[in-house]
């Protein structure tokens, strides 16, 4: 069993992730595309809105009903995907999955705090959900 007390403040609940989770989510008023995804394990739901210009993501909005990790990851997705080519943004979910499950490097520097989630397989889905919603909104 784990050591009581010390692990309570374990790395995945570090301040950086908590700060990301605390950022207010905002939906887009007039998106070009939207996607909603659920995580059946914990009940997280992510709604992701996009506006595209010339194949690039011009604006991204989102809404999250979910755990702290999901909210924090959604903030990173919303911040980092703007300006990316749609084809590149659509690959983020797979690359985040590789980061979590296969020891890959973070595809976005802002995802570095989430490396601490690697040992917690049951939480991978929480981090992946916003990126999967992004891919879905992009029609992938």
């Amino acid at each position: 069993m784990s050591n009581p007390g010390e692990n309570m403040t374990e790395a995945i609940y570090q301040q950086e992730i908590k700060d990301l989770a605390a950022v207010a989510a905002r939906r887009l008023d007039v998106p070009d595309a939207s996607a909603t995804l659920d995580n059946p394990l914990c009940g997280d739901t992510v709604v992701l809105d996009l506006r595209l210009t010339d194949g690039r993501i011009e604006a991204l909005g989102h809404g999250v009903k979910g755990c702290l990790l999901c909210k924090a990851a959604a903030t990173v997705a919303a911040r980092s995907a703007v300006g990316l080519e749609a084809d590149v943004a659509a690959t983020l979910a797979d690359r985040v999955s590789v980061m979590l499950k296969q020891g890959g490097e973070p595809p976005i520097p802002a995802l570095a705090p989430f490396l601490t989630v690697r040992p917690h397989k049951s939480r991978h889905g929480c981090v992946l959900l916003p990126f999967k919603a992004l891919a879905k909104a992009l029609g992938r």
């Binding site: 069993m1 784990s2 009581p4 007390g5 692990n7 309570m8 374990e10 995945i12 609940y13 394990l41 914990c42 009940g43 997280d44 979910g66 755990c67 702290l68 990790l69 917690h120 939480r123 929480c126």
Partner: peptide
């Protein structure tokens, strides 16, 4: 506190 976060932290305390 999201239920999943609570369950995770409780698990860390056995």
């Amino acid at each position: 506190c999201h239920p999943h976060d609570l369950a995770h932290l409780l698990a860390e305390r056995g």
